[in-house]
């Protein structure tokens, strides 16, 4: 049911772990099935480039693979680019997910945005993120 890319990222997840002096940390829970994902960002305050990113995930194969893929997609990218990353783009990069697993990719997008929100608070920069946006997430 999973593509080779999903299985690859599940078996060899990239960027697992914590960042001790992270610029932003986001932890989110999946309302659907009770899974949890945590993302750590190291951001260069001057260039706004995400220099390092790691994750930890308690969830299924798709949740782990989307976490891993999302870290690969934003590492070395700017905050703006990261803000534009959608769960669909992550799923597409993995050559697709089974429909019942699309909500797991939402977890990855949500964790990233939560980490960026945390950075917004800590850095005082306005990234246009709003606490209220974390209430309901689109799963389509």
């Amino acid at each position: 049911m999973y593509t080779d890319k999903v299985l690859d990222h599940f078996t060899n997840p990239r960027n697992v772990g914590e960042i001790e002096d992270a610029s932003g940390v986001g932890e989110v829970g999946n309302m659907k099935c009770g899974d949890i994902m945590k993302m750590y960002l190291k951001i260069n305050d001057e260039t706004n480039v995400i220099e390092d990113v790691t994750f930890k995930t308690f969830g299924c194969g798709a949740a782990i693979a989307t976490s891993s893929m999302s870290t690969e997609m934003i590492k070395g990218k700017s905050i703006d680019e990261a803000l534009n990353l959608t769960n669909r783009a992550i799923a597409d990069a993995l050559d697709g997910l089974p429909p019942v697993k699309m909500h797991c990719s939402v977890l990855a997008e949500e964790a990233l945005k939560a980490a960026l929100l945390d950075y917004q608070k800590k850095s005082g920069k306005n990234l246009g993120l709003n606490e209220d946006d974390f209430e309901d997430w689109d799963e389509e």
């Binding site: 997840p13 697992v16 914590e18 932890e27 949890i36 994902m37 945590k38 930890k56 995930t57 308690f58 782990i64």
Partner: peptide
């Protein structure tokens, strides 16, 4: 478990 925030 090394990957799990709940284990942490």
């Amino acid at each position: 478990r090394a990957m799990s925030p709940v284990w942490e």
